[in-house]
Simulated scan of single mutants.
Amino acid sequence: MEPENDLCIKVLIVEDDNLIAKRYEMILGKRSEFNMVGIASTGYEATMLAALYKPDVILMDIELEDKQAGLRATSEILSYMPNIKIVVLTVDETDETVFKAFELGVTNYLLKNMPPQAIASSIIDAYYGTPSLHANIAGRITREFKRIKSSEDSLIHNFYTLTQLTPTELEVLEQLMKGYSRKEICSMRHVEFSTLKTQINSILKKFNKSYIQEVVDVLRDLHIPEILSQRKDKNLPLPPR
């Protein structure tokens, strides 16, 4: 977005590397639409200066006094001053860090080696509330949201299917998830192998699977055994059928 001629965006730089901080200061100093209000080198300083100067946009490094300091400062600042826009600049490009930053409410996420124009544009876009994510970062965010949505749907679907099992089928499934063999389960339950086979086939039909290991693997991936264990510890039944 092109800036207005009389635009003056107050920017706070949060960066513990003096050379990088000077680079940002130089980038801002060449543009009339920016007014740098301060430089912080720790999460504590970032929070204090944000409260003192109330910048429009903060360029926030993630790794300050420790690897999560920038994220903690971001969380605190946005909790009390939600109108401030935060653009994260970092060398860390892991999916977990990217998603955590956006989960906290940052406006944009750029790598430190981005050219001056990209940094300036991200500040202006953040100010106007129309961030333009770098294509690689945008792809990561999109994929992560899709993964979480898919996981939630799968959790809800499979947990609902669990409620359709009989108490006997549920007990058999729990024993399978604990790693017991069919022979061991027959011995523990004092049933014939043919009876257990019938119960497993019923479980497969309800989960729409061909092999019981498929059911076990899916439920383990969704941490269903832990959920069931927690409910038992609290004496909570499954939802009624």
Rank of each mutant, 00 (worst) to 15 (best):
E144P: 10
R140S: 06
G179E: 03
K67V: 01
Y80Q: 11
R220I: 07
S229N: 08
A138C: 02
A120H: 08
P55K: 01
L162A: 08
L155D: 04
T107N: 10
G38C: 04
V88D: 09
I77A: 01
D233F: 07
I27W: 01
Q164R: 14
E2H: 10
V37E: 03
V98E: 02
K232I: 05
N158C: 08
S187I: 10
E33R: 06
D233T: 15
K146Q: 14
E192I: 00
I62C: 00
E214H: 10
D61E: 06
E33T: 04
Y24F: 15
E4V: 06
E152H: 06
N113S: 10
M60Q: 13
R182M: 13
L196Q: 07
R31Y: 07
P131T: 04
K22R: 15
F102L: 03
Q230M: 14
Y44M: 05
P55F: 00
Q164M: 12
S41G: 12
R31H: 11
E169L: 04
I148W: 00
L170E: 10
F193H: 12
K232N: 13
E192N: 08
K183M: 07
I141E: 12
K10Y: 02
P115V: 09
K206R: 14
Y44F: 09
E192R: 11
S210V: 03
L228C: 08
L59N: 14
E15V: 02
E169I: 07
Q68K: 11
F159M: 13
D17S: 02
V106C: 15
Y44K: 14
V57K: 08
Y128W: 02
Y44C: 03
T161V: 13
S151Q: 14
S181T: 15
Q199E: 13
P116E: 11
S210D: 10
L12E: 13
Y80G: 08
H134D: 15
V14N: 03
T94F: 09
H223M: 11
T198A: 11
R72C: 09
N136C: 01
S122M: 01
I224H: 00
F159A: 07
E33F: 06
A138N: 05
N158T: 05
Y160L: 13
S194Q: 10
I227Q: 14
L155C: 07
S132N: 10
A101H: 02
M177V: 04
V87H: 04
L19W: 03
P82G: 05
L78H: 09
G129S: 05
L238G: 04
L52E: 15
E25Y: 03
C8T: 12
P240D: 12
R23N: 14
E144L: 09
T198C: 05
S154N: 09
L12F: 09
L176I: 13
E45Q: 14
T74G: 02
I123Y: 09
S122G: 03
K232A: 13
T163M: 00
R231H: 12
E45I: 05
D66P: 01
L170A: 12
R189K: 15
N136V: 11
E184Y: 05
I203C: 00
I20V: 15
M48K: 10
L49F: 03
S132P: 00
K100S: 12
M1N: 06
V37M: 02
H223R: 07
L78P: 08
E15W: 02
I123T: 11
N113P: 05
Y53G: 03
I13G: 09
I20W: 04
P225R: 09
T47D: 00
D217N: 14
F207K: 03
A73F: 03
